[in-house]
Design a protein around this nucleic acid. Structure first.
Lengths: 210, 210, 210, 210
DNA sequence: CATGAATGAGACTTCATTCAT
DNA sequence: GATGAATGAAGTCTCATTCAT
């Protein structure tokens, strides 16, 4: 008996917990599909459960409530996008190549999972129902911070001028990316042109172009 | 629709129409207050009517539905912000002064009517309930177009380089403004520093600074 | 217009409010029927509305929630029972006659509205869902207080000994009545015998019998 | 059922049955804690299992359903209270001393296990979910019967008058005790005064005082 | 034109119970 | 015997909208 328990500790994925993990996975996948397709307010926990092929109640076994599920979806999307971008610029040191790489990577992700990014960007503030709730940091703001780090690195080694706040610079980059890509897609600009314009605008904004 | 309004202004309003106009005004003011305070989804037509001091049913005499009311609120806010900005840069020809003027004007508006801008920026797409509805153009996108015109003017007279799409440039400006001002406020940066950084980032992005 | 308003003040039952009052009445009647028939936990607001012939939502126009409706039902029942008892002993000064009168009156009420009293006696503590809620005074306790007043009166004029606390005495009377009548009914004792035994037990307990 | 229990005591329990007995014990203790703390409707079988440190499913190995568990809790509490009272009046023949002894014993129990008595008194009728179910006799009614036996004994040996039904007398005693002790505690009367008043009221009610 | 009582589809969530492991 | 993930019927309550007055 105690033997078995110890074995379980080294192999934490017991039968039950593996099954539970599977359910959670199915639910998150379903949530992604539906949040993207119909948006937060038009997606019911019930729909997610059905799409996942589990019972209504199972939903609440994995998420405290609908909002928690949405936040989990956003977290996942953010991690994926960030990971993809990081992989793309692995080893790249030139700023312009980094900018271009991240933009390309974001476009790739958007093509592979259409709508996911847009859905994930829904302002969490909109979901707050209980007054006085912690206004969870926006995914865009978090992304801006990633950019801030990159910028700070280049300010330190002299590639970029230091006459502006790296924090605001990071947010500006995200602001440009968000707004131009939304409109660029809506007005059906070509991906190449769009990317090139974005790179130019961003590089210039940061003072990285003579 | 604006036609009709003008006709009404030229001929003396009947008793009924004056009363109606008054109701509409009170409702819109109430709507602004509540949409700003509690957001779209947590504001009920009933609340708006009560705050306006009219009966619930009266709401539907003036707006087809809740969404229409929200859109009217957004329209109004947009017009106010735009008007204020236009007044501020009246007669100003220098780009940097225009940029600074509009930013200052936006900040002023935000201080006078806290939260209105943020509320008005809610993506109308989120409100769509009927599938296949026309996703009304976002207020930010419309603003970007205003900037595009300004930029195009400066490209034509050689103040700005023409090596990027003025449309995207306009959106980029709006993107920078939105994202940096949100974060700037959240992190409690001083208004002066924030404005100065925004001006510098925008001017550089557009190639207006050596 | 202002004329009409003033008339309305003297005749507060406008058309709308009269209709509302009617709905409330129908709901309370339905609530009584169902709470008595199926108990608190097996009666749904929906059932009450249906039985009353109004829509689900109307229920919540008149009661904050299910518990509030139950409490309103209890209040009503208590008032009725109390009123009937008070009417019965109007002008009666002899204690034994008062006791007998109230017991008879309670039995009458129980025969006219079977189960109402039993249902109304449900401990409100059982309904508390939010921790720290005000534990509304029990209907029995309130009744005990009514008896306390009667007893105090007889202690003051020497009809009853003063060697016990009138407050406890009042509660004791209610305790006797409740427990003996429940069991008396369950074991199908005759009403006459039951009443007579109750009178004797109560009179003796209060020291009102030599 | 009590037969089976006794057999188990005489022959050495197998490993399995000992373990089972242990689980049942832990569950009943947990049930007592939670029923007292949160009441019947706010206590879920899951909570009981968790508090007992066993799996949810184990609950149903020991009790047919939630109601059965509650009834087992009530049984246990009743037996404890009764046993304590019986021990206290062991050898006491004087009625007043018996009454006082039982009251003291009940108070002691209430101090040692606060809330248990109150929780156990929940009318089982309230728990009935299947229509037409036998409404199990109330614990108070059972207690009244115990008193009836005591009273009958005193009627037989002439200590008490025989001009009232001993059954009702027993119920009356319980009614007095219940109602006065609830209110006495709520209004924070001193234990001594409360007990003394209760003794006097009960003794008089039964005609045991000159 | 104005009102506000009424509506009912539908939202979110809970929980007693089962059953495969 | 023990477990705990899964279930889904059922419950309470909301709210955008209508309509009789």
């Amino acid at each position: 008996m105690s033997n078995e328990a110890e074995i379980n500790e080294t192999r934490p994925a017991t039968r039950g917990s593996r099954r539970k993990e599977e359910s959670r996975r199915k639910l998150l996948e379903a949530a992604r599909t539906l949040f993207v397709e119909k948006g937060y307010h038009d997606t019911r926990p019930q729909d997610i459960a059905k799409q996942a092929g589990v019972g209504h109640g199972t939903f609440y076994l994995h998420f405290d409530d609908k909002k928690a599920c949405f936040l989990a979806f956003v977290d996942e999307a953010r991690d994926e996008v960030t990971q993809a971008a990081m992989n793309r610029i692995e080893g790249v040191t030139n700023l312009e190549d980094q900018v271009r790489g991240i933009i390309e990577s974001t476009f790739d992700y958007g093509e592979e999972f259409p709508g996911v990014f847009e859905a994930a960007v829904t302002d969490p503030g909109l979901l707050a129902s209980n007054e006085g709730e912690v206004p969870d940091a926006n995914i865009l703001e978090q992304w801006g911070d990633v950019w801030s780090d990159i910028i700070k690195g280049h300010q330190d080694d002299g590639t970029l001028p230091s006459d502006f706040d790296a924090v605001l610079g990071g947010q500006a980059v995200v602001g440009i990316m968000r707004q131009t890509s939304i409109v660029g897609q809506r007005r059906e600009m070509g991906r190449e042109d769009l990317a090139e314009s974005m790179v130019r605008l961003i590089m210039r904004a940061l003072g990285g172009v003579s």
